[in-house]
Amino acid sequence: MTLTQDIETCRLCAERFAATATQHSPRPVVWFRPSARILIAGQAPGARVHESGRPFTDASGERLRAWLGLDEATFYDRDRIAIVPMGFCFPGYDAKGSDIPPPALCRDTWHDKVMAELTGLDLILPVGLHAIRYHTGHKGSLTEAVMNWRADAPRLTPLPHPSWRNTAWLRKNPWFEAELLPDLRARIQTLL
């Protein structure tokens, strides 16, 4: 079996997911090929992605594609862009209806193996604090990590999660859309 097949058949979190408010089964969303030059390292699939089996098939995906200046066909071209979350499955909701963070077990089991296969990466885009901490070692806040984006550019650029929940963050940090995104879009176009 290939690494992709191993991840697609993973059931390590079956009991954990069955105990959530959503009581769902694992459905790993695997979207990468070793030829990819750009990595989008997300958090974990949401409920809609769990249903579709395709990453970022929700409003967050629309916003992310707009941020990156990519159409759907390019965004979903696995030979060029890998989408590797910190947790491959939808973690579920807690009793209050809030998202459960991606289980560390998934990251610890699979992420280093995936990164070992993605040897041709020219750009890594950690999306959200879980991914930022894994890929950068950053211990501070999301704002600090994203604000210091130039420190790791052009190889790595941390991004906030494109969720509607971060709309207030975007308003408070206009430099993100005015400075970071134009630079990032230009680098992506050069790579592709």
Score class of each variant (00 low, 15 high):
residue 28 P to A: 13
residue 92 G to N: 02
residue 167 T to W: 10
residue 11 R to S: 15
residue 182 P to R: 00
residue 137 G to E: 04
residue 81 I to T: 08
residue 105 L to W: 13
residue 47 A to T: 13
residue 120 G to D: 14
residue 86 M to N: 06
residue 180 L to E: 05
residue 9 T to S: 14
residue 108 D to H: 10
residue 120 G to Q: 15
residue 154 P to Y: 02
residue 78 R to I: 04
residue 110 W to G: 00
residue 115 M to I: 15
residue 189 Q to N: 13
residue 109 T to N: 11
residue 18 A to L: 07
residue 93 Y to I: 12
residue 48 R to M: 10
residue 48 R to D: 06
residue 134 Y to E: 07
residue 180 L to F: 07
residue 85 P to S: 15
residue 52 S to K: 13
residue 104 A to I: 06
residue 18 A to T: 10
residue 130 H to I: 05
residue 96 K to G: 11
residue 174 P to E: 12
residue 12 L to N: 06
residue 83 I to C: 11
residue 116 A to S: 10
residue 169 W to L: 09
residue 188 I to N: 01
residue 54 R to N: 10
residue 138 H to A: 13
residue 59 A to T: 02
residue 88 F to R: 07
residue 182 P to H: 11
residue 139 K to C: 12
residue 59 A to S: 06
residue 153 A to H: 08
residue 39 L to P: 04
residue 163 S to G: 06
residue 176 F to D: 02
residue 35 S to D: 12
residue 181 L to G: 00
residue 132 I to K: 01
residue 154 P to M: 08
residue 145 A to H: 09
residue 101 P to H: 08
residue 56 F to C: 06
residue 153 A to N: 04
residue 160 P to W: 12
residue 70 L to D: 03
residue 187 R to K: 14
residue 149 W to R: 04
residue 19 A to R: 15
residue 115 M to C: 13
residue 128 G to K: 03
residue 132 I to G: 00
residue 27 R to E: 08
residue 44 A to I: 01
residue 185 R to L: 02
residue 52 S to Q: 08
residue 158 P to N: 11
residue 4 T to K: 15
residue 176 F to P: 03
residue 84 V to I: 13
residue 97 G to R: 03
residue 156 L to G: 03
residue 4 T to Q: 13
residue 106 C to W: 01
residue 101 P to W: 04
residue 173 N to Y: 10
residue 68 L to F: 07
residue 121 L to Y: 04
residue 189 Q to M: 10
residue 97 G to A: 07
residue 117 E to D: 12
residue 8 E to V: 06
residue 9 T to Q: 14
residue 23 Q to W: 05
residue 128 G to P: 02
residue 161 H to N: 07
residue 97 G to P: 09
residue 146 V to H: 08
residue 19 A to N: 04
residue 53 G to F: 04
residue 159 L to T: 05
residue 93 Y to H: 15
residue 3 L to S: 09
residue 184 L to P: 02
residue 179 E to W: 07
residue 15 E to H: 13
residue 100 I to S: 01
residue 83 I to L: 11
residue 142 L to V: 07
residue 80 R to F: 10
residue 29 V to P: 00
residue 42 G to A: 12
residue 48 R to I: 12
residue 147 M to G: 10
residue 95 A to L: 11
residue 141 S to K: 11
residue 18 A to V: 08
residue 58 D to Y: 03
residue 26 P to E: 14
residue 123 L to K: 00
residue 77 D to N: 15
residue 179 E to M: 05
residue 14 A to V: 04
